[in-house]
């Protein structure tokens, strides 16, 4: 058994090993020192197995600021024709955007995220999409810790019988509450940026006692 496991390890490509090594380093305790990668995927649909990613957009946050220079925006070329991809193909062709194969895109994404904490709105879906792509490449799942802004936002709401806390808040609702401009809504990078601002605002609200740290954030 042990041998088999080891053998599998050996077969993994270098970029994956590199990615894995980054996790030997422990995450910092303080939020200010932690690198968060807020990301979003644009897809052909909502079926994790059948649908494919069209683009991945992400921004990195450290010490309560989004560093625009440390951003990620890649478009993925589609192997099979899908009517849902027509619109984005149009954009790609018109603006002459370079596209990557799914493998290449995921590979650069892994390099970009490292061991950062991932943040996404309805994170389960976006992480699922990436994991499916990884499995098509014969690779294990993402190893990063993940935060979901739906869940975090819920944590900012008061505990009251008068409101339904279990409600699943959409990105639009959160943007309206925090008065965030939703201009580039429905592009992966645009949504990632909106989510990042929402995430920063939520952190501010959750930190009303000034004592929040990474550990507590995962418990919200």
């Amino acid at each position: 058994m042990l041998n088999l496991f080891k053998k599998k390890q050996d077969n993994l490509p270098d970029f994956w090993k590199e990615y894995e090594t980054k996790f030997q380093e422990k995450l910092p305790k303080e939020i200010a020192e932690t690198r968060f990668v807020v990301f979003d995927t644009e897809t052909t649909g909502f079926d994790i197995k059948k649908d494919r990613m069209l683009s991945i957009g992400a921004v990195a946050i450290k010490n309560k600021s989004i560093n625009i220079a440390d951003g990620f925006e890649e478009y993925i070329s589609q192997e099979t024709f899908n009517p849902k991809t027509v619109k984005i193909h149009g954009i790609i062709q018109n603006e002459r955007i370079e596209t990557l194969s799914e493998e290449e895109a995921v590979k650069t994404f892994l390099k970009y995220i490292g061991n950062s904490v991932l943040v996404a709105h309805h994170a389960g879906f976006d992480v699922g999409m990436i994991n499916e792509a990884l499995s098509r490449m014969g690779l294990p799942k993402l190893k990063n810790k993940v935060l979901d802004t739906v869940n975090l936002y819920r944590g900012t709401r008061i505990i009251s019988n008068l409101i339904n806390r279990e409600k699943s808040y959409s990105l639009d609702e959160i943007a309206e509450t925090y008065n965030i401009d939703t201009k580039d809504r429905h592009t992966a990078a645009g949504d990632a940026f909106i989510t990042a601002i929402a995430f920063l605002t939520i952190l501010g609200k959750l930190n009303n006692d000034g004592k929040i740290n990474l550990k507590k954030l995962f418990r919200v």
């Binding site: 957009g57 921004v59 625009i68 951003g71 925006e73 890649e74 478009y75 603006e95 955007i97 370079e98 201009k183 580039d184 592009t187 990078a189 645009g190 990632a192 940026f193």
Partner: peptide, 12 residues
């Protein structure tokens, strides 16, 4: 790389 976010910041 496309620059959706940087363009938005420039827009502002």
């Amino acid at each position: 790389m496309k620059n959706t976010i940087a363009s938005r910041i420039a827009d502002f």
